[in-house]
């Protein structure tokens, strides 16, 4: 029976290097999903606060579906659905081909879609907090619609939406654990492999849980710094 410290050491004896790789995958998946989710979420929010009814309807259908489906199911739908869809297209040209969809990209799309539907709500309530006069002022000094959005509305929007988005980031970080179910070697999967090999399930899953906790604490510190930085800008104006 090896000691706890040998099992958690770096190198061929211990599992720390494998788990560190899992941390790298988890963090890079979350970081890769974030811009995708923010961009789609912002566009959905713009569509939702539009005067045009059809645009609003399309955006509402999007959020209803992706906020109503379990994240795990969305992940499977994307992973298997994309596999079958692409396979059928490829088979059309080459009947013997078989397709393997990248689980990282599937995870990124699924988590990004879920993130964006929640982010759109955060952006939408931030949009509502900005008075109409800000837009009118922008138009009055001759800015175009796009310029008004970029130079006048967006800087204020980010400040208002930041707490909500920070919350979503923490949820995203936790949701990345689901990709272990489609075979991506994230923290939880590596811990599971270690647990199966060493029969020390509690140790490794406990360790994985503590890593998630550490990531959450680090994120909270980082978010606090960003909020302070953004707050400072506001005072200077």
């Amino acid at each position: 029976m090896q000691s706890v410290w040998t099992l958690l050491s770096w190198g061929p004896e211990g599992w720390l290097d494998e788990i560190a790789y899992g941390v790298f995958i988890t963090v890079s998946l979350a970081l890769a999903t974030l811009p995708l989710g923010l961009l789609i979420g912002f566009l959905i929010a713009v569509a939702k606060q539009s005067q045009e009814r059809s645009l609003k309807l399309a955006a509402d259908i999007y959020t209803t579906i992706f906020r109503g489906l379990p994240e795990l199911l969305t992940l499977f739908l994307v992973f298997y659905g994309a596999q079958i869809g692409i396979q059928q297209v490829v088979r059309f040209f080459n009947p013997t081909a078989s397709v393997e969809v990248n689980s990282f990209v599937s995870g990124m799309i699924a988590l990004g879609v879920v993130f964006s539907s929640y982010a759109s709500e955060v952006f939408l309530s931030a949009f509502r907090a900005i008075p109409r006069g800000q837009y009118e002022g922008g138009y009055a000094i001759g800015l175009s619609k796009f310029q008004t959005m970029r130079l006048v509305v967006l800087p204020q929007l980010v400040r208002i939406a930041l707490p909500g988005l920070a919350n979503l980031w923490l949820i995203l970080l936790k949701d990345t654990s689901l990709v272990s179910a489609i075979g991506l070697t994230d923290i939880l999967r590596q811990a599971g492999v270690a647990a199966r090999v060493t029969k020390q399930a509690f140790l490794f899953f406990g360790f994985a849980t503590l890593i998630y906790l550490a990531l959450a604490i680090l994120s909270s510190i980082g978010i606090g710094l960003i909020e302070r930085h953004v707050g400072k800008q506001e005072v200077q104006r």
């Binding site: 949701d175 654990s177 599971g192 029969k199 509690f202 406990g206 906790l213």
Partner: peptide, 23 residues
């Protein structure tokens, strides 16, 4: 509260289902 809100539900479920087997 911080522990249970800061870690994924899946990890908690694994900790109970596989982890408690150690005890």
């Amino acid at each position: 509260v911080y522990f249970f809100r800061g870690t994924p539900l899946l990890a908690q479920a694994f900790l109970v289902y596989y982890g408690f087997g150690s005890f």
